[in-house]
Amino acid sequence: MTKIGLQTIKLDSAPYILETSSIVGPKEAEGPLAKYFDQCLEDEFWGEKTWEKAESKIIKENVSALVAKSGIASTDIDYCFAGDLLNQCISSSFGLRETNIPFFGIFGACSTFAEGMCLGSTFVDSHAASNVICATSSHFCSAEKQFRFPLELGNQRPQSAQWTVTGSGAVILSNNNLGKPCPRITYVTPGKIVDMGVKDANNMGAAMAPAALDTLITHLKDTGRKPSYYDVIITGDLGYVGKEILTELAETKGYNIKNNYDDCGVLIFDKEKQDTHSGGSGCGCIATVFSGYFYQMLKEKKINKLLLIATGALMNSTSSQQGESIPGIAHAVAIENLDN
């Protein structure tokens, strides 16, 4: 493990992404990526009494499904890195309290999935762990309740607003591929906090796009790669507004990502049919889209080199009320098929 350039870590052993699992809610199940998810729920409560309990159940069941799928005994999982959007990360800690796996609760807003992968892969690369789980979840209803308004309030969502994804995505990172060809993590670039002064909590894409740009450019400079090196560059939840901003800003800095860049918030919903305005968001957005769709593309070698950049808006409802601007963050993870 070596630090290269300003912020990037080169992972010499290139840990394997051994297995992934995803569970999504009913609305995501109506979206264009439905067939790639492991499990689709029929209602948002999933038999629970509250939204918070439902979200905990989603991450709990997803991690159980992941362990079962992987063929590794849960006692062989060394650490778990998980987080979500609710205050003090209660979905993850309540959901995973019975797993008996040493637990790191992490918060990076919607960037948590990549934050977990950065930490998990360096743990595996440094031999501190053999197998780690990285998981995140989000739930539309619990997020609306905490950050915005009650669901029954008859208000109109602005056009730039995004729709929090209900779902959970989880991966196992391992130093052993169990004989299967698996995509591997070669570099991680933890990002800086970037705040360009956007205050509108209904325009998260615009608030986070500068952070994504900063991490993208730093990653490319540190590794000496060009954007075209990657088959696909994906961001977490910039949505339609943020995607356009990132593409244009990158161009002004001399990086052309028009042809191989997409955003998970754009991919997960059908904008016209599902009326989600600027697209999906939340910890669960990139987690489910990567664990479901992109992991399968990597396994099938339709994609061989992928740069995953998860973006987060580091604010809460108090900071918004107090008129603070929204600091953004983005972490990048380079995922490649090495054994061809």
């Binding site: 609305k27 948002e44 939204w51 539309f140 209803c141 009650p150 669901l151 029954e152 599902q274 009326d275």
Partner: peptide
Amino acid sequence: IAKPKIKKQ
């Protein structure tokens, strides 16, 4: 009487 429900749009 009522139970919270998700918005469908």
